[in-house]
């Protein structure tokens, strides 16, 4: 009975994720400014979420191993870490595809890309550590301790560091409620950073209700410069024209302006902001999170089972040697 239920659950995961793939391409509408590239969030965010879940489970089993000293806990910690590593690679690759479309480059050493790369290195070092120690007991104990230390970096590298950095292009505001892209307040002549672009407010003029800013934007490395003219409605308090940054699908927008002090609040509008306002996109996104979590649980159980078998066989070989 239990085996039959397990088989039904696995079939359900197969059909569910197949449905998510179909919905991702056929039901989710194109998002303005992103086109078909916006669909990738249905894959990208759930894989990133699963890597956090997997590393958390790995840390829990590592702690349990240190406490109870049972080999099966070490096997589960390893299985979760391996799966977490795999899902982190998937999140990185899907993010790179998105960045190629939106930022015009696969790898930009953006804070978000750098932090996930560091995370990959930290967990790759765990596997290197495991393969470098011959003594089984010592390998388990050391990797459990290392896994706990590695986990301490996960919340910092995934949630804190990319949000602390002011010069990220990653559209945090798109997905996380309460997370605001606040923009920067600049007086005429002053320089600031929006994303990874240098901006300088050259001038501010008002014609009736319309406030126009003259902004010089420079690409990273100051390879090229352009002058943009975003406009803002003083009476209604919203942007009228938000021009695109050169070679980027991000727009420069005025959030507020004060003619008396000759200053304006400028912001970068990421495509994808508000992408989940669409109900179909939101439900597909949630279905993706559920499906990928279930897939991870399945993969984790299979890998744990295989590691247990491997351990059993090694013990038998030792006993008969």
């Amino acid at each position: 009975m239990r085996e039959r239920l397990a088989s039904v659950a696995k079939l359900f995961i197969g059909i569910w994720l197949g449905g998510v793939v179909v919905a991702m391409f056929l039901l989710v509408p194109q998002y303005e400014g992103l086109g078909n590239a916006g669909r990738i969030i249905i894959m990208h965010v759930p894989t990133a979420w699963v890597c956090v879940l997997a590393f958390t489970i790995s840390a829990i089993y590592s702690a349990l191993y240190l406490w109870k000293n049972k080999p099966e806990f070490d096997n589960r910690a390893l299985a979760a870490a391996e799966n977490g590593f795999l899902f982190t690679i998937l999140a990185t690759v899907t993010g790179m595809i998105f960045s190629q479309v939106v930022w015009g480059i696969f790898w930009n050493w953006d804070p978000r890309q750098t932090s996930i790369f560091v995370l990959l290195l930290i967990y790759a070092a765990l596997f290197a550590l495991r393969s470098a120690i011959e003594d089984l007991e010592r390998r388990r104990r050391l990797s459990a301790v290392y896994s706990l230390f590695a986990f301490v970096t996960v919340p910092f590298l995934i949630f804190i560091a990319p949000r602390m950095a002011e010069s990220t292009l990653h559209p945090n505001c798109a997905f996380i409620e309460g997370s605001e892209c606040e923009g920067i307040e600049l007086a005429v002549g002053k320089i600031g950073l929006l994303g990874d672009r240098k901006v300088q407010l050259l001038g501010l003029s008002q014609d009736g209700d319309v406030v126009t800013a003259e902004v010089k934007v420079s690409e990273p490395g100051l390879t090229s410069e352009a002058i943009l003219h975003p406009t803002w409605s003083a009476s209604e308090g919203h942007q009228i024209v938000s021009p695109e940054f050169p070679n980027l699908r991000y727009r420069l927008t005025i959030m507020s302006a004060d003619m008396a002090s000759q200053s304006a609040k400028l912001n970068i509008m990421a495509p994808g902001t508000g992408i989940l306002d669409n109900r179909i996109t939101l439900y597909t996104f949630l279905a993706g999170i559920f499906g990928f979590t279930a897939l991870f649980i399945w993969m984790f159980r299979v890998r744990s089972k295989l590691l247990d078998i491997q351990e059993d066989l090694q013990q038998r070989e030792g006993a008969f040697a």
């Binding site: 793939v21 299979v302 089972k305």
Partner: peptide, 25 residues
């Protein structure tokens, strides 16, 4: 056409992964 091609590729990859996982299990 590209969106259907991309969907077919993604679906095929998923089916292969699913069968592989099922067999290993």
């Amino acid at each position: 056409v590209a969106v259907y091609v991309a969907m077919a590729v993604a679906l095929s990859v998923w089916i292969v992964i699913f069968i592989y996982l099922w067999r290993i299990d």
